[in-house]
Amino acid sequence: MSSSVSHGAHDEAHQKPLLGSMGVDSRKLGLWAFLGSETLFFVTLITTHLIFYARTKATLAAAGTLEHLDPRTHYLGIELTTVLASLLLASSLTMVLALAASKVKDWKKFRFWQMATILLGSAFVGGQVYEFNHLYHEGLKLAPQYVLEGETVKSLFGVTFFTMTGFHGLHVTIGIIWLIATYVKVAKFPDSPENPMDIELAGLYWHFVDLVWVAIFTLIYLI
């Protein structure tokens, strides 16, 4: 940097976002593009599950056993899932409140809301582990068949279900690690001009995992 640039100008330049050729912050653009690709990833998993569930239903209906062997009706209750959906929705709210606090440099509020987001996310993952464990003991496994009322049904329902929700749980876990990293970084360097953008990026990813659960909750558990 030229020595003629004043210290004030240096600070100003340092606080500007990393603008790329598109005139927007490159990191944010990259994250949005990544999230765009993630929509394709999750929609593929959801679609695959829906197709194989439709196949299973058709097979059971043809055999006249749909009533008592329908895997969705038997395995997927909405009590726990509604709690999980509420936890993620609440965490989205706390995340955006953490971001709002960071923008006015209210680090006390930021720490509170960010920690709330981390705890709500952790509760979601805990709930999902409980659900998986419960389903496993009920006979739904990561295998090309499931066992219901002593009968073994050949179906990819379990495989596609655990792959889809498992990948979502993995994304939530990565999100929690990201949020913790941001929390620690802000606590260590409260004066860093990059804090609001770092928090915004972590927040974008976090809202996205909530968005995916909105789709899974409706398409897999409710409809």
């Binding site: 927007v24 593009a33 929609v43 974008l204 809202h207 909105v214």
Partner: peptide, 30 residues
């Protein structure tokens, strides 16, 4: 969630483009 929590509403058009186009494509694919 997208418009208000992720602030896509009112954000730069390029962000809307890189996210909404794949989303639309994903819906069509589904």
């Amino acid at each position: 969630v997208i418009a208000f929590f992720m602030h896509l509403r009112g954000d730069a058009k390029i962000f809307q483009f890189v996210f909404l186009v794949p989303l639309l494509f994903a819906f069509t694919l589904c």
